[in-house]
Structure formats: structure tokens, C-alpha cells
């Protein structure tokens, strides 16, 4: 861990050095009225005025649809072709928020629980995170309530805190971050001794995780699930924009004698998610599915995996067509 100063022009030069190194760089881009991570070549493509991208950076280490392996049927035999980790390109996620970087830990906890996930780990090994601490927040942000903060460095390889002069405090946090900085070491100047806290948004915590956890441990049969979920229409928007939701489906892409087995995003909010072949559905009603979403993130994951399944990014609340505001719902559970 090393703290440096990087000037405005230094940032641009360094960015260009990363591009020149051949790594793919994804950054928030404003397009079609949405701000989302896109492949970029120039720093001027990167969006500046926004609170949060619509989608998280989850897809960089857990693609929406990914080939687990492929196969070909030849004369009654089957030839398998395994996923090749070398096929994953070196990628830098530029200008992620701390709540996004923090999402990799719970995501990996799921994928690597009692058995490594080769695909996820291959992406992780090739992905570097350059986070920017947060100088602003909106009413859906609540990282400080879930062990995070606007300047949280967990998960980041390098974190920049923007300064009024257009330069930034650069915290080089990991060896991978060091390698990134080493692409153009000259722009990383000596630390000017400025404290980054001054440039972070003040975001008071809204609830205590311990309190929520205690309440949830007795809440399975509570009427709160039905009350809160009435307006939920059962789509997967919340799960798909979430940095930590990892539920997936496995599907078959068939073309004659060739085929690919595909892992794709799924959501516990979908009615069909738990449907048995017999027609029996353990989570028949939306209220049960809403309960699952909340309990999984705030109770089961902490207990089984030792991580909270929420980083307080607020994307689910912003993406929800019917304003299922997770902060509001969790706060009300904490206060019950």
C-alpha cells in the first residue's frame, strides 16, 4: 500500500498507457440516456456527471451468458472442449465506485464456496479495478450501512480520490495495482499529504447490520414480507443490476451435432426459479421470493459465507419499476 499524487494530465497519460499496454479498459459511458460500463479507448469518452451506473461491474467476472464448455458429437462419441482461462483478456475496470469493488468479495464467496469456480477465477485473475472514491451520493446510496464507505478501498487495486485541481490522491493497494501504476511510473508523484476524507461525501449510516441480522433471524414468518412485496411485479431487474447477486441457470446452445453449455444470469425473484418438475413450487408467491432475496443477502450469506450480500450501491432501488426501495425496506425491518 502506497499513497501517491497524480496530476490531471498525469491521469490522462496513465490512462493512455493502460490502453497502449493492450489491456481492455471498461469505463462508465453515457449513451442512450444510460450510464454503463463500456469498452473505451479515450479518457474523454468516460462520463463524469453521474452518481451510479445502471449496471454493476459484475459482468466483468461473471458474464451474463458464458460458455462453460463446448462439445461435438461424432459417431456416437462426444468430444469435450473445456473452457480456456487463457481466452480471458486482461481487463481494467476504470472508475468503479467503492461499492462495486466491494462486490467482488461476496460474489467470489458464492462462486468459490467449498469448491473453486474455474471460470469466475479466470476472470478475477485478469481483472484489475481502478476505483474512484465518491464525492457525491443520492438517496438510494447506503454503503456506510453495510460495512462500506465512500472511500472504502476493499476490492480495489488502485483508488483515486479526485482533488479540486483535477489531480487525485492515488492509493496503490495491491500488487496488481502496482503493476498498473508501473505502466507509467513517472506520473505517480510523491504524496502531498492531503487527507482524502475531506473529499468524500458524508453519508451517515441508516441502519445497523447487527440489528438487521438479529431481527431477520426471527422474521421468517413475519407479515412484513407480504406487506413489503405487494407491489413487486417479480422481474429480475434488481438481481441483474446487483453487484453481488449470483444466481444462475445452466442452458444448452445446440447447433446440429455441436453444442455449448451456457451459464446465464437468473434471479430468485422469478416465479419459475424453484419450480420442481412435478409442478410443486416451494416459493410459489412473490412474498416468499422477496423474503428469500432479503434473507439470502442479509442473513444466510453472513452466516454461511461470512459476507453480507449487499454493498449499498442502491442499484436495485433505482432499477425497480415499482420502487421496491431496499434501503427503506431494510430500515423498516431494523426498526420493527
Amino acid at each position: 500500500m502506497e499513497t501517491k499524487y497524480i496530476s490531471q494530465s498525469g491521469i490522462e497519460q496513465w490512462f493512455n498507457a493502460i490502453i497502449t499496454s493492450g489491456k481492455r479498459v471498461y469505463a462508465p459511458v453515457n449513451s442512450r440516456g444510460q450510464i454503463d460500463f463500456k469498452l473505451v479507448k479515450n479518457l474523454n469518452e468516460v462520463s463524469s456527471e453521474y452518481i451510479q451506473t445502471t449496471q454493476s461491474i459484475k459482468a466483468s467476472v461473471y458474464p451474463k451468458a458464458e460458455v462453460l464448455f463446448s462439445y461435438e458429437k461424432v459417431n456416437g462419441k462426444v468430444n469435450l472442449t473445456d473452457f480456456d482461462p487463457e481466452s480471458v483478456p486482461e481487463t481494467v475496470m476504470w472508475k468503479v465506485h467503492p461499492c462495486d469493488a466491494a462486490g467482488f468479495k461476496p460474489l467470489s464467496a458464492i462462486f468459490n464456496w467449498d469448491g473453486a469456480d474455474k471460470l469466475h477465477n479466470a476472470h478475477l485473475a485478469k481483472t484489475s479495478l481502478v476505483s474512484f472514491s465518491c464525492a457525491s451520493a443520492d438517496e438510494s446510496c447506503f454503503c456506510t450501512s453495510v460495512n462500506g464507505s465512500p472511500g472504502n478501498t476493499a476490492g480495489s487495486d488502485i483508488q483515486l480520490t479526485m482533488l479540486p485541481d483535477g489531480g487525485a490522491i492515488a492509493e496503490i493497494l495491491t500488487s496488481r495495482g502496482g503493476e498498473l501504476a508501473a505502466l507509467l511510473p513517472s506520473v505517480f508523484e510523491a504524496d502531498k499529504g492531503v487527507k482524502k476524507e475531506k473529499y468524500l461525501v458524508d453519508l451517515p449510516a441508516r441502519f445497523s447490520l447487527e440489528e438487521v441480522n438479529t431481527k431477520l433471524s426471527k422474521a421468517f414468518n413475519s407479515t412484513v414480507w407480504k406487506e413489503q412485496s405487494e407491489r413487486c411485479i417479480g422481474c429480475g431487474a434488481c438481481a441483474f443490476v446487483c453487484p453481488t447477486c449470483a444466481c444462475f441457470d445452466i442452458q444448452e446452445d445446440v447447433h446440429g451435432s455441436k453444442g455449448r453449455r451456457i451459464r446465464c444470469w437468473d434471479a430468485c425473484g422469478f416465479a419459475m426459479f424453484t419450480l420442481h418438475t412435478s409442478g410443486h413450487n416451494p416459493r410459489e408467491h412473490q412474498s416468499q421470493r422477496w423474503r428469500q432475496r432479503i434473507l439470502h443477502k442479509f442473513s444466510y450469506m453472513p452466516e454461511r459465507l461470512g459476507v453480507v450480500g449487499c454493498t449499498g450501491c442502491g442499484r436495485c432501488s433505482r432499477a425497480c419499476p415499482v420502487d421496491m426501495n431496499i434501503l427503506e425496506h431494510i430500515t423498516s425491518i431494523a426498526q420493527q
Binding site: G115, D249, D266, P282, Y300
Partner: peptide, 11 residues
């Protein structure tokens, strides 16, 4: 193998 989330029953 405990990752896809489907068979989660309680904890």
C-alpha cells in the same frame, strides 16, 4: 455445488 442458488432452503 452450492452456487446457482436454486436449492437454498432457509439457510
Amino acid at each position: 455445488v452450492g452456487k446457482c442458488g436454486r436449492c437454498n432452503v432457509g439457510k
